[in-house]
């Protein structure tokens, strides 16, 4: 039997591509959670509300410093104890989203800190309401600056989706495992899975790098 069987490789490709769509869905939904929740955390922390500020700090540090896989298991086993029954897919989106929100909140914070003090003072001098200061002055300057960093986190989230096979989500690697267990041929499924990741994440990272350079030269 050859080490690499092209006809087998082509026969499993459609199933793997279908699973890749699931992986992308989870990445997109997880990114929405991460980008929005991270922004909320960053803005709330900027307000320095006593107690809430310490709670948010502790939460961010805890989530950032412990493994995503443990957090996935935690949500998977702990949520049902509150009577919350969610599918593995939704738990995956939540776990990835919240985990990466702690990263993005730090990125947003750096972007917000980089907005010159004078911009805040000018906004105050114009007596803009608090919400307008954020949406009209600070964030439009802070967010473009950090887009490359946020993009990098989306790519890295994409590569962490396979962790969810541990709770039974059928993404690319899990699909590869199931296909392999039917025929006892693992070379083709896992190799194709790896190539699929490379084909998507490498061009994406080149794109982010270009964005980075454009911002530096601009």
């Amino acid at each position: 039997m050859p080490l690499w069987d092209w006809s087998y490789a082509f026969s499993i490709l459609p199933d793997l591509l279908l699973a890749l769509v699931t992986t992308i869905e989870i990445t997109v939904l997880g990114s929405v959670v991460a980008l929005l929740l991270g922004l909320v955390i960053a803005v709330l922390r900027r307000a320095r509300i006593p107690v809430l500020d310490q709670v948010l700090w502790a939460f961010v540090e805890l989530v950032r410093s412990t493994p995503l896989l443990v957090q996935v298991f935690f949500l998977f086993f702990a949520l049902p104890r509150f009577g919350i029954e969610l599918s593995a897919f939704v738990i995956g989106v939540l776990a990835l989203g919240v985990h990466y929100a702690t990263y993005t909140s730090e990125v947003y914070r750096a972007g917000i800190d980089a907005v010159p003090q004078g911009q805040w003072e000018a906004a105050t001098a114009l007596s803009l309401p608090r919400s307008r200061v954020w949406t009209g002055v600070v964030l439009p300057q802070a967010i473009p600056r950090v887009l490359p960093a946020l993009g990098n986190y989306v790519i890295s989230m994409f590569k962490e989706v396979p962790l969810l096979l541990a709770i039974g989500v059928v993404e690319v690697v899990n699909e590869a495992r199931e296909l392999g267990s039917e025929t006892f041929r693992y070379v083709e499924p896992y190799t194709i899975a790896g190539v699929l990741f490379l084909l998507l994440s490498y061009p994406a990272s080149l794109l982010v790098r270009r964005l980075e350079r454009r911002r530096v030269s601009a």
């Binding site: 590569k159 962490e160 396979p162 962790l163 096979l165 690319v172 690697v173 994440s201 490498y202």
Partner: peptide
Amino acid sequence: RGTSEVVQ
């Protein structure tokens, strides 16, 4: 850097 650690 371009592939998933789990795949590796």
